[in-house]
Design a protein around this nucleic acid. Sequence first.
DNA 1: GACTATTGTGAGCATTAGCTCAGCTAATTT
DNA 2: AAATTAGCTGAGCTAATGCTCACAATAGTC
Lengths: 206, 206
Amino acid sequence: MPSADRRLEPRRKPRQVRAELTRDRILTAAAHVFAESGYAAGTTNRIAERARVSIGSLYQYFPNKDAILAELLVRHIDRGTWTGADELDLSPGTLEATVRALVRDAIDNHSDDPALLRVMIEEAPVSQELRDTIDRHGKQRTAQVLDVVVRHPDVHVGDPAVAAEMILLTVEINTHKFMADRGTTPVETFEDELVAMVTRYLRGDR
Amino acid sequence: MPSADRRLEPRRKPRQVRAELTRDRILTAAAHVFAESGYAAGTTNRIAERARVSIGSLYQYFPNKDAILAELLVRHIDRGTWTGADELDLSPGTLEATVRALVRDAIDNHSDDPALLRVMIEEAPVSQELRDTIDRHGKQRTAQVLDVVVRHPDVHVGDPAVAAEMILLTVEINTHKFMADRGTTPVETFEDELVAMVTRYLRGDR
DNA sequence: GACTATTGTGAGCATTAGCTCAGCTAATTT
DNA sequence: AAATTAGCTGAGCTAATGCTCACAATAGTC
């Protein structure tokens, strides 16, 4: 294992459609392999094999294994970006509904491929570089939530900025944990409790 | 990297004091090495070197690298077990204080060695076996929290069991995140917000 | 068709980590 | 003080993975 290049940028960018396709095939294959075997056992050779692409091609578009994971992670995060954020209802009495929408989003995002998510969140080594990338992509979401926290009339918290970050992390992680090892608890129960937690916190009256 | 023995039990248990000492030296060294270099780069040879112990000795007490991490993790968890749980105040109006105690515990536990904690939580590969061990040790805490949730007169939540697990995860993770990359926010602010979140959730009035 | 740019190939190298084991030293027991 | 048990050593083996690079194939352009 040579000391890997820590850069996440590829050495070549796709210019033709077939290249774009190869790239996608690699990513899809990587998702499957990681989900099935975990990060360490998900070798680049296996990924290439599964994608029916030569290992050389893989290294055309991804400088190293971590970069593949990074891309998958970023895709997950970006997929979670709140689409209907513009037409947010800021009238009194709608707080719970807004929070519920946020929670539902998270649950949906974690429904697709819990195994892959587990690998990415629990098993993958997170470099400083990757952490920065994640933060950058998370900023958008934090901003959206912060916007609600600041502008919604029903919200009463001490420090909106801290609140926004706390809420996002809490929703994300709890959802992940719940989806990763489902017990006997129905999703609805979980959803209700999580919504209750966040809503009551935000509402903040005693 | 030979396919590692997945067992976490050592091949020999210390019988003499000097052996116990060697074991401790290894663990302490491992904590340092992991904290400094991360999990992947924290090789067993470097750990042994740092502990001034031969690599052979290391493998007397730990069957593989993961086992060392497992022990460190378990120690962290066990250290967090609520000591004063017996004399819990269950009279009305004391809920916030109880929650604050829980949060303070978490903060204290993460103050010692944030770097190591980050490696253990974010970077370390978590096998099924290790996950089970963690769960087992976490059970005690969940039980304690569940006890409060069920018995305290001020608590009103839909599903106490779900609530207990959610609270623990939320407090642990938020504390970890906060301590891992301290921004400009003072600890007190963070503490207050986290306490508010949990307390308001538990109190459950609207 | 000729020429260039882009994309794809895969055997195998370089590296490095985890771990073993044969034999030594120290403690304990008899 | 001999015998036995426990503890310690470290050179080096085994295995495997990430990754390179010289070349081949395909697509695009004139």
